[in-house]
Computed example of a mutant assay.
Amino acid sequence: MRTAAVVGAGLIGTSVALALSRRGVLVHLIDTDADAVRTAVALGGGVDCAPEQPVDIAVLAVPPSSIGRVLAEHQRRGLAHTYTDVASVKHEPELAVLDAAPDPTSFVGGHPMAGGERSGPLAACANLFEGRTWVLTTCSHTSRETLNRALAVVAMCGAVPVVMEATAHDRAVALVSHAPHVVAALMAARLEHAPEEASRLAGQGVRDMTRIAGGDPGLWGDILEANATAVADVLAEFADDLATTVTALRSLAEVDAAKRAEEMTRVIDLLGRGNAGRARLPGKPGAAGGALVPVVIGDRPGELARLFAAVHETGINVEDVSIDHSTGRPSGLVELVVSTDTAGLLADRLLAANWTVQRIRPVYPTATARPYGGPERETPARLSVPG
């Protein structure tokens, strides 16, 4: 692949452009927002001019409701030989493509499972898709050449391709992406008028839960509209569980000990189901559990870099890292996840370098975590590209 066009210079579109440009592809950036294009070009995402002849592939980074119209416009102008998109909803755009596009055979739906709470080209990065799943939704009209070119884009972006049917994709993302965003927004909305003392007590847990609620409301409104039924189905089940839990919690304040014990069983069961559900999420490829090494760092410039340099000197691989720092406190906590057999060595080396290390704790791998009171779960088989 030598040439490409990216229509839409936002977070995802610019990240695609940066990744392809890094691999030597000449990328033409197109957007009605001239400032966004100029920013993407300045970042190294490509050039701000129309191609003189059809490019190999055009990536449509526009809202789901615009896919059919934008594809039809650019196909009539002969922008590219092949087209794909990056919208997070696939069924309705596919119907719009089949209805409006002059040549549906040259289009395949796409959805990279990556993003961020910030939007716009300044939030983009070339490695945004590294190791992430990138769904391609073929239909009966999709040509093999179209699929192959889309697979080339996925490979150049460092992502892992997965081929799915559009409606199956939409049901899946309703559960693992769209409904969680609504739940995060609902929880974050509780904080809008929170007392100042409550805000001061906020720790990493509430930040983690509400992080995705910082997304663009307009874009998310478009996404939810395009996948409304599937998201509503998930939230209806959530609402049933929530209503049961509210009733159980209110009953825990009753005098009747037998009633309290009965309702506590319901609460514990829900928490256990939460453990079991989280255990089904795939962890980092190749990770096999490990231990968490908490390290206290001062709230001073360069402290985090100094810690990472100290860890680098040990030669120990860090599987994951999280940072917990409450506003106004003179220190924070960096939690390093490493393999179990190296945790003690890492702690000893850091202690010797005068770092404050708290108690090491075991971490179960996400895919095989032990649910509350239940057996270990196996990781579900990953979808793969057929044939």
Rank of each mutant, 00 (worst) to 15 (best):
residue 323 I to L: 15
residue 106 S to M: 11
residue 305 A to W: 10
residue 141 H to D: 13
residue 166 A to E: 04
residue 345 L to P: 07
residue 240 D to H: 15
residue 250 R to C: 00
residue 26 L to W: 02
residue 338 V to L: 09
residue 383 L to A: 14
residue 306 R to I: 07
residue 51 P to S: 07
residue 258 A to H: 13
residue 284 K to C: 09
residue 368 T to V: 11
residue 64 P to Q: 05
residue 224 L to Y: 02
residue 308 F to L: 14
residue 199 S to E: 15
residue 200 R to S: 12
residue 39 T to G: 10
residue 295 V to N: 08
residue 240 D to R: 15
residue 344 G to S: 10
residue 157 C to F: 07
residue 72 A to K: 02
residue 107 F to W: 09
residue 34 A to T: 13
residue 323 I to P: 04
residue 125 C to L: 12
residue 189 A to S: 15
residue 386 P to A: 07
residue 212 I to P: 01
residue 155 A to E: 13
residue 367 A to E: 15
residue 154 V to C: 09
residue 270 L to Q: 08
residue 33 D to F: 01
residue 261 A to D: 14
residue 24 G to R: 07
residue 129 F to N: 00
residue 271 L to M: 12
residue 365 P to Q: 06
residue 22 R to E: 15
residue 5 A to M: 04
residue 313 E to R: 12
residue 154 V to T: 07
residue 104 P to A: 02
residue 174 A to Y: 06
residue 16 V to I: 15
residue 167 T to L: 14
residue 186 L to Q: 13
residue 121 P to F: 06
residue 326 S to T: 15
residue 93 P to G: 09
residue 299 D to V: 02
residue 343 A to Q: 11
residue 360 I to D: 03
residue 44 G to R: 03
residue 104 P to Y: 03
residue 145 E to N: 11
residue 32 T to W: 02
residue 225 E to H: 11
residue 228 A to S: 14
residue 111 H to L: 06
residue 82 T to E: 06
residue 145 E to M: 10
residue 113 M to G: 09
residue 82 T to I: 10
residue 355 W to Y: 14
residue 178 H to N: 03
residue 59 V to F: 05
residue 52 E to S: 14
residue 361 R to K: 10
residue 271 L to Q: 08
residue 106 S to W: 07
residue 339 S to Y: 00
residue 126 A to R: 10
residue 27 V to R: 03
residue 329 R to D: 11
residue 180 P to H: 10
residue 205 G to D: 12
residue 98 L to V: 00
residue 306 R to G: 13
residue 27 V to D: 05
residue 213 A to Y: 04
residue 117 E to Y: 08
residue 224 L to S: 02
residue 118 R to L: 13
residue 353 A to M: 04
residue 189 A to Y: 10
residue 86 V to S: 06
residue 228 A to N: 11
residue 210 T to F: 05
residue 295 V to L: 11
residue 84 T to D: 08
residue 322 S to C: 13
residue 126 A to K: 06
residue 174 A to W: 01
residue 74 H to M: 11
residue 186 L to W: 04
residue 332 G to T: 07
residue 116 G to Q: 07
residue 242 L to V: 10
residue 246 V to M: 02
residue 56 D to T: 08
residue 335 E to D: 12
residue 214 G to W: 01
residue 190 R to F: 05
residue 115 G to Q: 01
residue 88 S to Y: 02
residue 383 L to G: 15
residue 279 A to N: 08
residue 27 V to N: 04
residue 340 T to Q: 12
residue 319 E to T: 11
residue 328 G to W: 03
residue 199 S to Y: 12
residue 169 H to D: 00
residue 131 G to P: 01
residue 11 L to W: 08
residue 35 D to Q: 11
residue 191 L to I: 11
residue 280 R to Q: 13
residue 363 V to S: 13
residue 259 K to Y: 08
residue 95 L to P: 00
residue 332 G to C: 02
residue 12 I to Q: 06
